[in-house]
């Protein structure tokens, strides 16, 4: 599904140069739930951003579904992000001036879906995350767990094949975290969505199929588990 070959990422600021990723090779299979762990600053977010075409690598190639996407023009990249990928971030990244349903509709807006169809699909996505009663609320009127569920609804509304989640439970207490984790597992197992998740929570990582340990810009080993819905 996702194939990274020899990926490098160098951040250059005026004074220092940071090598955030060094020669990363990684394959994510279709329908897989992969988690990534590692110390702070080791390059996990950078890796996820590059997989999600939110940032360009300094070297190497990315293949999605067999198509090389590392050098595509912005228009094509935007289309792939819109249709194939869904994002979930630690700090939710909802648009504060739009209410829940408008936030969830966003990916469909860039896809020319009619307003009534958008509404219908957004409602379905919100039902899946158990938030259909709060569609007119604004993000600042919701709890952290609710915000993250809105973000998940937004990530799945366009029915992407891949969801990239960067510490989706990082800002949540363990109960809320488990709730979000359950939704992700369900998406993976029932809808066959491929998920790559960065986490600091060992227990959550253990519930995914495969754990990749990352250190200093490189994977150091990977472990496989049997996934389970609790």
């Amino acid at each position: 599904m996702i194939l990274l070959s020899n990926i490098e990422k160098v951040y250059r600021t005026s004074s220092i140069q940071t090598l955030a990723l060094r020669n990363v090779n990684l394959a994510v299979a279709k329908g897989e739930f992969l988690s990534i762990m590692g110390p702070s600053g080791c390059g996990k977010s950078t890796l996820l951003n590059i997989m999600g075409l939110l940032d360009a690598p300094s070297g190497g190639t990315i293949k999605l579904d067999g198509q090389t996407v590392s050098n595509l023009p912005d228009q094509k990249l935007a289309k792939i992000r819109n249709e194939k990928l869904g994002f979930i971030f630690q700090s939710y990244h909802l648009i504060t001036d739009l209410n829940v349903i408008d936030n969830v509709e966003l990916p469909l807006i860039y896809r020319n879906v009619s307003a009534s169809e958008r509404k219908k699909r957004a409602m379905e996505a919100l039902e899946k995350v158990g938030l259909s009663a709060r569609t007119k609320h604004y993000p600042n009127q919701l709890s952290g767990g609710q915000r993250q569920r809105v973000a998940i609804a937004r990530a799945i509304v366009g029915r992407p094949e891949v969801i990239l989640a960067d510490e989706p439970t990082g800002n949540l207490d363990s109960v809320m975290g488990d709730e979000v984790m359950n939704i992700l597992l369900q998406l993976n197992q029932q809808d066959g969505t491929t998920i790559v998740m960065v986490t600091h929570d060992e227990a959550q990582a253990l519930r995914t199929q495969r754990l990749l340990r990352f250190f200093d810009g490189q994977p150091v080993n990977t472990e496989s588990y049997a996934t389970q819905l609790s």
Binding site: G52, L54, H93, L106
Partner: peptide, 9 residues
């Protein structure tokens, strides 16, 4: 950034 991530060119 959010809009671009969600597919805006």
């Amino acid at each position: 950034g959010i809009r671009r991530a969600l597919g805006a060119t």
